[in-house]
Design a protein around this nucleic acid. Structure first.
Length: 273
DNA sequence: AAGGGTGCTTTGCATCTGTG
DNA sequence: CACAGATGCAAAGCACCCTT
């Protein structure tokens, strides 16, 4: 970049040679690993080396859905486009670009595309990114389900809201009431890896302290997704704090969520509907 | 040497707020 | 009401330090 900082193109430059060597090694290993399972068949191949950046731009303009696969093949994502090209808010999965933007992006990624790629390989790249995105979305839905259950089974309306403690703004995943002094605050956390337990528990304890410093009379509860049941007690112990009035665990199952929410409502003293 | 603890970057999603 | 921008969060992966 002209400002002295590096672009994603520079990042790729750092590792290009090593990546090239590794690619050779991997291809060799694959051939040796599956000597009896390798077939040659006809497959559609897109020859990027035969096209100009303009041809590429035209393809993206006429068929915006292809962008994610192309970007994925170059390891370039929306944030890099925003930082390096000053094109903001690109929905890489179904972009709506001006012709100029498409041309800029095409010119940017063209050098990182291989000379050709098989259509099934490209579509698999898109598929991986799509799956990743949809999984994240579903995990976000879990938090939503906890929140909705709190309102459904408790006699209070819970919602996500901000609050101010010690001059700084923080967010609660579920809280009541929706405005004014918080009476009940809930942190909803997924801890999907053992190694994250300390970081997440610290976040929870800190959030509890912030809530209590701003609203000393409030109750603070926690709903945790932690798929290592034998260690739930461990999480309980780490969250033992004067600022935390209840810790419950929930999986993705409906009954598990409803059971956890029921226990938390009791722990916080929120009447049931 | 192996593994835990910690801090950082990147990706992507959701939500709130201001604007047209 | 739709869209953009700002902000916060979860998770994967890497690096480094320290203990066992």
């Amino acid at each position: 970049m002209a400002n002295g900082y590096e672009s994603h193109a520079d990042y790729i430059g750092w590792v290009k040679d090593d990546a090239d060597s590794r690619q050779e090694v991997i291809e060799d290993a694959l051939r040796k690993a599956f000597p009896n399972f390798i077939e040659k068949r006809e497959v559609e191949v897109i020859v990027f080396s035969s096209m100009s950046a303009f041809d590429l731009a035209e393809a993206v303009i006429d068929h915006p859905l292809i962008l994610k696969a192309l970007l994925g093949a170059c390891n370039i994502a929306a944030r890099a486009i925003e930082r390096d090209l000053s094109i903001r808010n690109v929905d890489t999965y179904s972009p709506r670009l001006t012709d100029d933007q498409a041309k800029v992006i095409a010119g940017y990624i063209k050098p990182f595309l291989p000379s050709y790629l098989e259509i099934p390989a490209l579509s698999q790249i898109d598929r991986l990114a799509f799956i990743d995105k949809e999984i994240r979305k579903e995990k976000g839905r879990w938090e939503k389900r906890i929140l909705e259950s709190m309102t459904r089974f408790g006699r209070l309306q819970f919602s996500k809201r901000m609050f101010v403690a010690e001059g700084e703004e923080f967010e609660l995943d579920a809280a009541s009431p929706q405005s004014g002094d918080i009476k009940d605050g809930i942190d909803i956390k997924r801890i999907e890896a053992r190694r994250d337990i300390h970081k997440r528990c610290d976040e929870i304890v800190n959030k509890a302290a912030k809530v209590k410093s701003a609203f000393p009379a409030s109750k603070f509860g926690v709903v945790v997704y932690y798929p290592f049941i034998e260690e739930h007690i461990n999480v309980q112990n780490r969250l033992r704090s004067g600022n935390i009035d209840g810790v419950v665990f929930a999986s993705g199952a409906k009954e598990s969520i409803e059971n956890a929410v029921g226990m938390l409502l009791s722990a916080l003293g929120v009447p049931r509907k």
